[in-house]
Amino acid sequence: MHPASPDNANDPVRIFAIDDDSGVRDALACLFKAADYRFTGFASAEAFLNQEVQTPRGCLVLDVELPGMSGLELQKLLRNQRAHRLPTIFISSGNSDYVERAFKGGASGFFHKPFAPEDLLRCVERLV
């Protein structure tokens, strides 16, 4: 179970995952729904941007390598939008250059695929 924040304890915690691999999205959906989070998955950065995402409590789980706009490009775009306040955790099979760039861009975590689901869940719980 995830902890409740006193300021917005009644707001649902939302997890948004962007990964072009449907198997990864399905696994993340199972993981986060089992932990009582509301989950929405997207196959691309563009699909995420086309949805109106407004939630005061949540987290973005983002793959680095995506078709079209990369995860790092999306991170930069969102960072420049004042309305975006979701912490971002990257998951990727990418190299160490990606890790450095992600953290310089304000990432809250980075997990290399394959990763232990419980580690990702603990990281999200710490952030929301």
Rank of each mutant, 00 (worst) to 15 (best):
L77I: 08
S22W: 11
P56Y: 07
N50P: 06
R25I: 08
S108N: 13
G58D: 00
R85V: 13
C30R: 15
R101Y: 08
R101V: 07
R126H: 11
R122Q: 14
G94I: 03
R82I: 10
L77P: 05
F16P: 08
L120W: 03
L121D: 05
A27C: 13
L31C: 02
A107K: 02
K76L: 10
P12W: 10
T88W: 08
K33Q: 15
P67W: 00
N8V: 07
F16G: 12
V24T: 12
L78P: 06
F48H: 07
C123A: 15
Y98I: 06
A107H: 01
V124S: 05
R122Y: 11
D7L: 15
V64F: 10
L62W: 09
V124K: 00
Q51V: 14
K113E: 05
F90R: 01
C59L: 09
S70I: 00
A27K: 05
L86D: 03
A9Q: 11
F111C: 04
P56F: 12
H112A: 13
R101A: 11
K76V: 10
V99D: 09
R79Q: 13
C59G: 02
C30P: 04
T88I: 04
I89F: 08
M1P: 15
G109D: 06
R14N: 13
L77S: 10
N80L: 09
Q54D: 13
V128T: 14
R79M: 07
M1R: 11
G71I: 00
L77E: 12
M1F: 13
L72C: 07
H2V: 02
K113N: 11
S92K: 09
L120T: 06
F48K: 04
D11K: 13
F16Q: 07
A47G: 04
N8H: 13
D7N: 10
